[in-house]
Design a protein around this nucleic acid. Structure first.
Lengths: 366, 366
DNA sequence: CTGAAAGCGCTTACAG
DNA sequence: CTGAAAGCGCTTACAG
C-alpha cells in the first residue's frame, strides 16, 4: 500500500535530505517539522514524521546542527587527572552536583573532558577537541596543559579554585584566610609543635616532605593558599614555619593521610597538632594516631578542611573549615550559562567559609 | 617585520582556511599540521603553528571535525530525572566513576545528558540532540522517553539495571535472586510480619502504599525485580505477600526512608522486619525506629540493598546486598568502548552479588 | 610533500 | 506555508 517500501529502505543512513526526497518536499520542510513546528501544517508535519519513522530517521543529526548553529548546548568540565578520581572526592562530587543542576536547568549537557592519560604529546588535546560552548575549570594546577588548551579556545569559561586570569571569572572561597583561622584556633589552644599533611603541590606525583622552596612554587593554587594561611597564623604566633614539616600526598585520600601522619608521628619531636588540607587526609591522620594508641584530641589535635559529610560523623568529629561545595558548583554553572546566553553576569564575591570546631582538636596537654 | 599584522588580525573568527590563506598554503596542509604531522615537514608545521598563534587559531573546530569524521569521541550517559540526583546517590556515583575510568582510558569524553525538566513536549529531545557515539543507559524506567529517544538513534548502547532489549547488551546483577536471599534470611530468623520501603515503581512521583497492581506494573525494572524477590521468599515461607505493606518513596534518600518507616510502624500490626530496596532508605528506617525508642535489631530488623559506604559504618551496621557498582560501570563503559571500536565484545554474564549479614537484623523476639 | 574538489548533514536568511 | 541556494569548518580520497 505504501509507496515502494523495498527501495525506500535503503542501505545508506537516513538523513534529513533523504526523508525530504522520499516525501517529495524540500529539506527545509523536514527541518522545520523538527525545529519550527509553527512553519508547517500539523498534517504535513505528521507525514514528515511518518516518513521518518519508516526510514528509521531519528531526527536531525546533533553534530551537523551544532556546526550550522555554532552552538553545542554542552558545558565542559575540566578536572585534574585522572578524571575518574573526581568521583572519589566528596567535595568534587558535591561540586559536580551543583554544576549539573545549573546546566540541566537550562537544558544543557555536561561533558567531562578526559585528561591526557600518559601520552605527553597529546597533553591538552582533549580540551582542544571537546565540542562545548564553554568550560568550567575546576581545581587544576596553574600550568595544567588541559586548562591551557581550553582557555586558548577563547570560549566563555569560569575558573573554580584556580588562579585568577584576566577576563575569566573566579568562583571560590578565601582559602588562605580560612586556613589561617584553623591554624589560629590551634595556636589559641596552646599548641607549639605542628605538622601538616597536604594534598598535591604539583602534578608530579611527589610524596614526602615538601620544603619551603617547593611550597612556594606549588602549582595548585588551593594548596598554596592553604599552606600560606597556616604559615601566616603560626608565624604570627612567633613560631618558625620553616621548622614545620609539610608532608605532601599526591592525592587526597584517607590511606595517603594515614601514611603522611605516620611519617610525622615518627619524628623525635612529635607534633601535638596536625593540620590537614582536606578532611579525607585528616581522617587518615586520625586513623594513624589511633593505631599508635594516641588519643585524639588528648595526645594529638587534628583539623581538616572542607567539611564533607564524613567529617561530622567521624569519631572524634572533625574540626574543619566548612564551605558549600554544591553551592559553589551551582554558582559556577549558572554564571557560565548566563554568559553563554549573553546575559549580564558579573563575577560573584568570594563565597563564605567558616571554621567548624568539633572534638578532634583540644587544648595542648603536657 | 611580520607581514601586515594589521590586516592579519581581522574580526572574523580564525578558521583553518583563514590560517591557510594567511600562510599561502592549502587548507589541507594546515589540517595535516594538526592531524597528520608525518604529512609535512617539521619546519612547515612550525610555520603553520606560528601563523595560527598569531591569528588566535586554537586548532580544528571539534564540531566540524566530528561531522566530517562522523565520530564525536564522546559517550553519553542517561540517568533518571533530574540528572543532578545522580550525585546524591552513592551507588550512582560509584557507577559513574567506573564508566569514566573506562571512557577516559580510551580518550573519550563522558556526556551527562540532561533530562527533559518539565517541558513535556520536549520529552526525550535531549537524548536525540546529544552529540555522542553511543549511550550508557543507567537505571531508567522501561518507558522513559529519554531512553526511547536515545535507542531510536540506533547508536551502540549498553543498558544497565534496565530491562533487556534485543540487540542491546545488558549489565547488572540478578536483582530478584539477591532480594530473595535477603528476605529468606529474615524468614530464617523467624520473622512473620514484614514491611517494605521501596524506591520509585514509576516516575510519577507517587508516595505512599503501593498495592499489588501497582507493583506488577512498575516501570523501573530494578524495583520490580527486588519486590518480586521479596515476594518469592515470603510466599515460599507460606506468608501472604498481599498483606505485606509496600511503602513507595519517589526517590532513594534517608529522609524518605524515615517517612516510609513511620507509616509502616504506625500500623496496628507493626512489622518486626522491614526490607528496604536501598541502603539510603534502610538508614532512614533505622532512624525512624530509633526515634520511636525501638531497638534495631531487638525490636525491629532492617535490611538494605547495595552496600554503599555508610552501610558498614552505620549504627547498627546494615545487613544488605553487596554489589560492586564501580565494577559495573567499568564493565559497561568498556563494553561500549569496545563496540564503538568495532571490536568483538559479547554481553557479559550477570555480575555477582552477595548477602552481607551485619547487626541490623536479628532473631524475632516476642 | 602538496593541491583542488567534494561532501559530512544540517539551518537560515532571502524570496515567493 | 514552501523552495533553492549558500555555507557552518573541517577531512579525505584522488591526483600529481
Amino acid at each position: 500500500v505504501k509507496g515502494n517500501p523495498e527501495s525506500a529502505i535503503e542501505k545508506r543512513r537516513a538523513t534529513l535530505t533523504r526523508v525530504a526526497e522520499e516525501l517529495g518536499v524540500s529539506p527545509m520542510t523536514v527541518s522545520n517539522a523538527y525545529s519550527r513546528p509553527d512553519q508547517l501544517s500539523p498534517a504535513l508535519r505528521e507525514r514528515v514524521f511518518e516518513t521518518a519513522r519508516r526510514l528509521g530517521y531519528a531526527g536531525p543529526d546533533p553534530v551537523a546542527r551544532s556546526l550550522r548553529r555554532s552552538r553545542t548546548n554542552v558545558v565542559g568540565v575540566l578536572y585534574s587527572n585522572p578524571l575518574s578520581y573526581a568521583f572519589d572526592d566528596a567535595a568534587a562530587v558535591l561540586f559536580l552536583r551543583g554544576v549539573t543542576a545549573a546546566t540541566e536547568a537550562s537544558g544543557m549537557g555536561l561533558l567531562l573532558v578526559p585528561g591526557s592519560m600518559g601520552a605527553p604529546e597529546r597533553r591538552g588535546s582533549a580540551a582542544g577537541e571537546a565540542a562545548v560552548d564553554g568550560f568550567v575549570v575546576y581545581s587544576m594546577a596553574d600550568d595544567d596543559p588541559l586548562a591551557e588548551a581550553a582557555l586558548r579556545r577563547q570560549l566563555p569559561a569560569v575558573m573554580v579554585d584556580q588562579p585568577r586570569r584576566d577576563g575569566v571569572p573566579f568562583v571560590g572561597i578565601d582559602d588562605e584566610a580560612a586556613a589561617r583561622a584553623v591554624a589560629e584556633r590551634l595556636v589559641s589552644l596552646g599548641h607549639e609543635r605542628y605538622g601538616v599533611v597536604s594534598f598535591a603541590l604539583a602534578a608530579d606525583g611527589h610524596a614526602g616532605i615538601a620544603d619551603v622552596v617547593r611550597q612556594r612554587s606549588a602549582t595548585y593554587r588551593v594548596t598554596r593558599s592553604r599552606l600560606e594561611g597556616y604559615a601566616a597564623a603560626l608565624s604570627g604566633a612567633g613560631l618558625s614555619w620553616e621548622e614545620v614539616p609539610v608532608y605532601e600526598c599526591p592525592s587526597s585520600t584517607v590511606a595517603l593521610g594515614r601514611t603522611g601522619a605516620q611519617a610525622l608521628l615518627d619524628s623525635d619531636l612529635r607534633p601535638t597538632a596536625i593540620l590537614a588540607t582536606s578532611d579525607q587526609l585528616a581522617l587518615g591522620v586520625i586513623e594513624a594516631a589511633k593505631k599508635r594508641g594516641l588519643s585524639v584530641p588528648d595526645d594529638l589535635s587534628v583539623a581538616g578542611f572542607d567539611d564533607v559529610s564524613p567529617a561530622a560523623t567521624a569519631t572524634p568529629a572533625l574540626t574543619t573549615v566548612h564551605q558549600d561545595h554544591a553551592e559553589k558548583g551551582l554558582l559556577a554553572g549558572r554564571l557560565l550559562v548566563a554568559r553563554l546566553r549573553g546575559e549580564e553576569a558579573p563575577e560573584p564575591d568570594l563565597l563564605p567559609a567558616r571554621l567548624v570546631v568539633r572534638s578532634s582538636t583540644g587544648r595542648y596537654r603536657f
